[in-house]
Design a binder for these strands. Structure first.
Lengths: 112, 112
DNA sequence: TCTTATACATAAGAAAATTAGGTATACTTT
DNA sequence: AAAGTATACCTAATTTTCTTATGTATAAGA
């Protein structure tokens, strides 16, 4: 992921989150969706995305289904049952993390 | 940093941010301050903190000053002029990053 | 005396990214 | 027709940043 090498484990969480919204997505589609949602601020690099997808699949959170569309291969990913649970868990973990981070970045605001 | 291995380059930014608020801080103090601000959610590990401080110093963003307090050595860090600029830059970069991230995590909210 | 807190530090390893490369098809532009 | 861009997958080397483990040392509390 681009946008100046911030976050670490957030790419996997982003993938899980997108697949919560949309039943099936393929790799390239994910890169485009993220670019669109962030108005070009996040550019998911393939070197980061594909290993992440493979890892999530190996962990049992995603299943794949290959289709041939317009002469090109597409590998669609979907959440498994465990993937669904993992998505919920990881997303709220990240949201809590962001809240804590904001407490450090803006201590004046306190618990707000 | 603990709290489930999220963020990547955020530790350096946290350090810079804290030193914007407080003129001088030493390593151990930083770990305690972060723990306090996040109600124990972030635990800065020494293995992450000290190399980060040394790197920021090597990059010219921090200067040090050693004091002996109660028979123990303390190494105080302060922002240089460049460190001050870097702090501002990195903090807003991180804030923008968080905004983008939230757009992905919660696409329904749009630009809000 | 032993444990905890304070205070610094480094080194080995793991995790996750970047960068760079590779293959291949379809569409658009020159 | 050729060349470039978009689509679509993939891996490998390297870098960055973290965790975990370890080491040194003093002060305070049980």
């Amino acid at each position: 992921m681009s946008s100046s090498k911030l976050l670490k484990g957030s790419l996997a969480i982003i993938v899980l989150r997108l697949l919560e919204e949309q039943e099936k997505m393929y790799g390239y589609e994910i890169t485009q969706k993220v670019k669109e949602l962030t108005a070009g601020e996040f550019k998911i690099t393939e070197g980061a995305l594909y290993p992440t997808l493979h890892k999530l699949e190996a962990e049992g959170y995603l299943t794949t289904e290959t289709q041939l569309v317009d002469g090109r291969v597409r590998k669609y990913y979907s959440l498994t049952k465990e993937g669904n649970a993992e998505a919920k868990a990881k997303v709220s973990e990240l949201e809590e993390f962001i809240l804590s981070l904001q407490k450090v970045l803006n201590p004046k605001l306190g618990t707000l």
